[in-house]
Amino acid sequence: MRRFGPLAVALASFALIAALGGTAPNWVVFLTTMAFAKGIVALGLVLLMRGGLVSFGQGLFYCAGAYAAGLAMRWADASDALLLVALGGAVALLLGLAIAPLLAGYRSIFFATLTLALSMIAYGILNKTYSLGGSDGINLRAPSFLFYRAATPDAFGYALFVFTGLVTVAAAVLCRLHFDSMRGLLSLAARDNEIRVEYLGASVRRVSLGNFVAAAGLGGMGGALAALALGHIDPDFAFWTSSGEFVFLAILAGHQSVVAVFLASILLELVRSFSSQYFPNSWQMALGIFLLLVILFLPEGLGSLLRRRNPPPEAASLPVESLK
């Protein structure tokens, strides 16, 4: 029963997303597409944070995915969205794999600042690399979807939305399954007490490495999706404000619920688009105050409202009384 649960939820939520997208106005479709793309990156960060590590440089992978997709389109004339997103994820994952050994020994603030430094190095390099568009970046064409090529911008927007929804649901289900697995639990354990984890015979280093690389891959997929949605890539993908936004999302959502990540992301996009229109000079302030309030009153994030710590179904069958 438990094995089919996530699949059913996945299909139902995907159908719901596709149906709602078909009736929503264009700006909502675009906004949700972006929210999903960024939500996937934030989901990777949540995965990392379950293991006790906070990266302030997730923009690096977001950027790597975006550029991988963009450059494949430009140089190799690749235009299939599925291929581009898979490529974005794979490139970011490899990048994560390459720098993970450098980061594996670091914790808390050192890890945060070092990841920030790496993403800022990438930002600096991209800004001055004119063959990759320099600070202006590169404009992208609209991709195709397997055999479907959208005829109008509206149709393309909806197609990309559905495709992004599909990737989102897949990522969410996989993460949910992982969070409930032994290795997923081990992340929480490593966050709580590294010494005990080592004494139990498991490797904290391996847990951290795995989470970091997986988060990098998710970051790359999110970046590729965002690049396709915006039709543009530039170094700002790696700028620290992007990374800060992912941290914001991850804190807002908390680590208990996968759905909360995407709700938080949609919420943030809505707040941003409304406030930057109506209060262009004070919306960051509103975000800041909101973040303070969340940390103060909802330390486990929005997810703690969605998901109670309910005992597993097996628990009821154990003869608790007999143990006393």
Partner: peptide
């Protein structure tokens, strides 16, 4: 319970599963 489940899980398998439910 989860503390002990974690300990048992690590003790009983050489490679922890990433997808199968821990319980």
């Amino acid at each position: 319970e989860e503390n002990m489940l974690m300990a048992l899980g690590i003790a009983r398998s050489e490679r922890l599963s990433s997808w199968r439910d821990a319980r």
